[in-house]
């Protein structure tokens, strides 16, 4: 499995994905200038922009790396040679996943440092009303990483059943959007405002709420931007949720993938 992780990382770097990200990250340079458009929260705006950029880059990575990793191996017939080696299918899948997740973490660390520099620069020019809570900013990026690792696991699960490129990519994007609103929908159907909704709809929505990943818990942007306190209890539950949910996704993926026919 570690050899597969190594090969996966090598592949991502050799495909110049990292260089691509670094080019995109040049947008960081523009952020201090852009943030001065704000009247009352220049530092907050620069934090918003940097965190959003990091989030966006990670979304792209998880959709395209996660959604195409297995597909590419099957499409380019790499699976015949690799799965003919004494590797278990599960080990192969987990290695592919692990390599992609590790790359995401690496990118987040590099971008996180860049973001810190940008925000610190802005804050030195336009001191914010409230001091930046760097711990919360780091936590926000970390939880973003967890969220997108979960998304990668979703992409892998879809990849194990799909033979095409489109289903994993668009399925992952759809899951991402749906996972961001499930909490809102759930709260809506449990509020008096939804009393006109049919019970079947409500049950369906509740079912989806429990089935789909819930990404809202991972979003600590508001806490990071405005220095709001983060409840430790909530973080613990979110991490536990992450571990269990990713574990389930991967075990389903491994089960499906080990039964898949490599024709």
């Amino acid at each position: 499995m570690t050899t597969i992780i190594g090969i996966t990382l090598k592949g991502i770097f050799r495909d110049r994905v990292f260089q691509g990200i670094m080019v995109t990250a040049c947008a960081f340079v523009l952020i201090p200038g852009l943030a001065t458009l704000s009247m009352r929260q220049v530092t907050e705006l620069s934090l918003t922009l940097t965190l959003s950029l990091i989030s966006f880059i990670m979304l792209m990575l998880s959709v395209f790396l996660g959604g195409t990793s297995l597909w590419k191996d099957i499409e380019r017939r790499y699976t015949f040679s690799v799965l003919g080696l004494p590797l278990s299918r599960q080990g192969y899948l987990l290695g592919r996943f692990g390599g992609t997740a590790l790359f995401l973490l690496l990118v987040a660390v590099v971008l996180g440092i860049a973001a810190g520099a940008v925000v610190a620069f802005t804050a030195s020019v336009h001191p914010p009303d409230r001091p930046i809570v760097w711990g919360t900013v780091a936590l926000c990026i970390l939880f973003d990483v967890l969220k997108y690792i979960l998304l990668i696991a979703v992409a892998f699960l879809i990849s194990t059943v799909s033979t095409s490129f489109f289903l994993p990519v668009f399925g992952t994007i759809a899951t991402f959007l749906a996972g961001g609103v499930t909490q809102q929908v759930y709260e809506y159907i449990h509020s008096p405002a939804s009393k006109n909704l049919s019970p079947i709809m409500k049950q369906l929505a509740t079912g989806l709420y429990y089935l789909l990943p819930n990404f809202s818990a991972f979003d600590l942007k508001v806490n990071a931007i405005y220095g709001l306190p983060v409840p430790a209890n909530g973080l613990f539950l979110t991490v536990a949720y992450f571990v269990v949910y990713v574990g389930l996704l991967l075990s389903f993926s491994a089960a499906i993938f080990s039964r898949r026919e490599m024709r």
């Binding site: 959003s52 966006f56 991972f218 942007k221």
Partner: peptide, 19 residues
């Protein structure tokens, strides 16, 4: 609500861009 859905995890960014 529709905006919140589209904004996904970028609500703060969308809000800032509106302002």
């Amino acid at each position: 609500p529709a905006f919140k859905t589209i904004a996904a995890d970028q609500k703060e960014l969308v809000a800032a861009s509106l302002v």
